[in-house]
Design a protein around this nucleic acid. Structure first.
Lengths: 224, 224
DNA sequence: TTTACCGTTAACCCGCCCTTAACCCTGCGC
DNA sequence: GCGCAGGGTTAAGGGCGGGTTAACGGTAAA
């Protein structure tokens, strides 16, 4: 769920944008002037900001500059009716990340917002297989809504299994992708695999099966 | 968001001023006599004070003098119906920063308040996360209305955590943004983090949690 | 000069996690 | 039936790193 701030003084347009973005599953706060925008930015933590340049009280360029000055580096998309190069330059100089000229297609706004929000949050770091979900950035795994308690190594193994799903991963490449060149001398994989299985057992019915001469494979039973 | 104190015994006028200032996105506390004004000044941390001279109990000049005497240097704008040079002089002698003669245009009050608040605090440097508030210029932190007693370094750490909220901050970038290039050789972060946590504990239920391989994260419980 | 505060450092505790080793169990070939 | 190979299981050891505390030195205010 992307959470963003729309700063737009044209209430009709703002309403349209909000409606559209909500269809795209984005949560949208709204400010209609620059001052309000700044205080919302200080409070809410947005993944992106859509900022009109023509605003009462404090125009978009100033808002942008002010935000950057106090260390807020949330991605900002500027909106304006003017298609002047100098405007674009000014916008980017104040620290904007993107620029959109009115009138624009809603689809384009959506695409750009998603691109920016994604870039900021470290791009697509969610893996999911059935009810299993893994966030690589936060190093957290979920089974449904239940957190999966397991060590970093176990999670690395799980990541490989989920990437390969539904195919098996052979032992060699599993070791290679978890440990790199330096694989431990002994039977670490066995132990970590055991821990991972215990963790999976305790939280739901996902298992790791082994087939000789083939490798390990993630199994997620169909019924929840 | 500018937070200021209005001291005015004429309730009609006070209401008008408050309404107008709120449109300008300023938060406005109100006192109708000098004694109340002084106790509010001692508690809340205002960025400016609008102070009528004619007040019951303690007149504006006395309030101003008293405030300065106890070391409060919040910018003060005096309001009065009299347009006498001697009054102005007296006001400035007591430590006022500006002077406005009734009747005045609301716009003028707004401009002057903003100018003073800005001069004093540099510019908008408020961070807030839930009940936590941090003024970077004044180097003060509040939990609700309770001041958070902590050292400059602890506050710098808190600032980073609040900027990142609700995301975690990894150890490296935390050290980098607090100390810059020259990080201390030893475990200063641990100690400062400890102090920050103690300070947060003593004042409300905000905590800093740590997750291995991820980093530190500010937690603010939902209920106030 | 004294006091208080602050940042740094060091020493120690403790928990988590990786590794290792020892042992169990199963399947397969001799 | 026996031995071996290889995965499965369990427990012990040790290291890394955060948490806690106290002491030291410097600096600014009283």
């Amino acid at each position: 769920m992307i959470k963003l701030l729309l700063v737009e003084d044209d209430l009709d347009l703002a309403g349209n944008i909000i409606d559209y973005l909500e269809l795209e599953d984005m949560l949208c706060d709204h400010a209609s002037n620059g001052v309000a925008a700044l205080s919302l930015m200080a409070e809410g933590h947005y993944q992106a900001i859509v900022l009109d340049i023509n605003l009462p009280k404090l125009d978009g360029l100033q808002v942008c500059a002010r935000a950057r000055a106090i260390g807020n580096d949330t991605p900002i998309i500027m909106l304006t009716a003017r298609d002047q190069l100098s405007d674009k330059v000014a916008g980017f100089e104040q620290g904007a990340d993107d620029y959109l000229v009115k009138p624009f297609a809603m689809e384009e706004l959506v695409v750009r917002v998603k691109a920016l929000a994604k870039r900021r949050s470290g791009q697509h770091t969610q893996l999911s297989v059935g009810p299993l979900q893994l966030d690589i950035n936060q190093k957290t795994a979920l089974y449904g809504s239940e957190p999966l308690k397991c060590s970093p190594t176990a999670m690395a193994i799980l990541e490989q299994l989920m990437r390969a799903y539904p195919h098996p991963v052979n032992r060699q490449s599993l070791i290679a992708s978890v440990w790199g060149e330096e694989s431990p001398d002994s039977n670490s994989l066995k132990v970590h695999m055991h821990n991972l299985r215990k963790a999976l057992d305790s939280v739901g019915n996902a298992t790791v099966s082994f087939t000789a001469n083939v490798g390990f494979q993630l199994d997620v039973s169909e019924e929840k």
